[in-house]
Nucleic acid binder design. Structure first.
Lengths: 105, 105
DNA sequence: CGATATACTCTGCAATGTAGTATATTAATT
DNA sequence: AATTAATATACTACATTGCAGAGTATATCG
């Protein structure tokens, strides 16, 4: 049952964004980070669906933040990558890099 | 309907393998290239399904080779990436690289 | 011809990706 | 205190991509 599945590309972007953002990684910031860095528009639904799946797989975990909103708004859910998630991310990136090594696009 | 979809990871590996192999890119060699480089097992069905989809999207094209088999066997179907495919590949790789830039895994 | 090697096709299902809409919560405005 | 706006996450349905394995095609060798 899908034994050696790698990360999808979007999953990869999401997890990397999470690492970049550190403590400030939650839905909205992750989305903004991907849009600005990867120049790729991200719909809200796509993001949360992916976050939920990554959490199911234990690649990330989340905790609900204490409400400290600027202008109002619901409490944030902060995300962090797990050790397992990092391992998977590394595998995917390594595979891609090995394949790309020496190839000029 | 899926306007800004990027390449999936497997698609990315397949297209890159194709570039590496140049004129000798066909099902079996592409498969071997991914397995040895990316250290990832690839089933035959997964590969051909992906090749067919890439061709539908005009990212690659194929032609059936004149039979010149060593030890027997069916004619090969050679694949080559198109200009459009190359553009897409570049976009995906660029997005990933930008995201990864400065991040240590 | 039968066995073997090489290579591709077909089919069904699982996982991931996308989109749109709804809901929750709080602050500011009036 | 009600209304409106801002911030943020949840739900639901469907499209696309990924995976697996059995099946088919064709050619060479003995």
């Amino acid at each position: 049952m899908a034994k050696n599945r790698f990360l999808g590309e979007f999953e990869l972007l999401v997890m990397t964004a999470m690492i970049r953002l550190g403590k400030d990684a939650y839905g909205a910031t992750i989305r903004a980070e991907i849009e600005s860095r990867a120049k790729r528009s991200v719909t809200v639904g796509a993001l949360y669906a992916t976050l939920a799946r990554l959490e199911d797989k234990k690649y990330v975990f989340s905790r609900v933040g204490e409400a400290t909103p600027q202008r109002g708004g619901r409490a944030k859910r902060y995300f962090k990558i797990t050790a397992l998630g990092r391992t998977q991310l590394d595998k995917s990136v390594t595979a891609i890099n090995r394949m790309l090594d020496g190839v000029s696009l």
